[in-house]
Amino acid sequence: MITERKPKNIFTQGPIAPSFIADSIQKHETKTNIGGHSIFLGQVRADLINGQKVAAIEYTAYEEMALEKMHVIREDVFAKYPLVCMHVHHSLGKIAAGEICLFVFTSSAHRKAAIDACTEVVERLKAELPIWGKEIFEDESYQWKENK
């Protein structure tokens, strides 16, 4: 049976709470065909740049385009790997150093699909989603984040 997936919203205003991640794991206990989960969490790093410490990153996105693109990535990854489910959450707005800004969660019957799919989603979303981050220093000056 082919089920059509609709574009989901991935954006959350503010940081992703660890309790939200715990609840998300908890919700999978009824899905007993799952044998492995893979989770990636992105955390805002307090980089030291020219003697200035990053206090927060303010994320913005071209939301409509990002959601369309994420839908394509989701479809591709479901076609490539035998996943049971996939959840993606990305923060918008100001996220302080140490807080979680990205949560990617894939689940499958056996570990390899979940692990490989999780890695692929993280790599593709960093490369393909129109999202930007302003690194705000402790003195309120800023620079634009570049993905490595």
């Binding site: 992105g42 994320y59 996105a61 071209y62 385009m65 990002a66 990305h90 800004c101 990205l102 993280v122 979303l125 960093k126 490369a127 393909e128 989603l129 129109p130 999202i131 930007w132 981050g133 634009w144 984040k145 570049e146 993905n147």
Partner: peptide
Amino acid sequence: VALLPPFAGG
């Protein structure tokens, strides 16, 4: 038309 500088998500 949108002008999109290098992406920096995640």
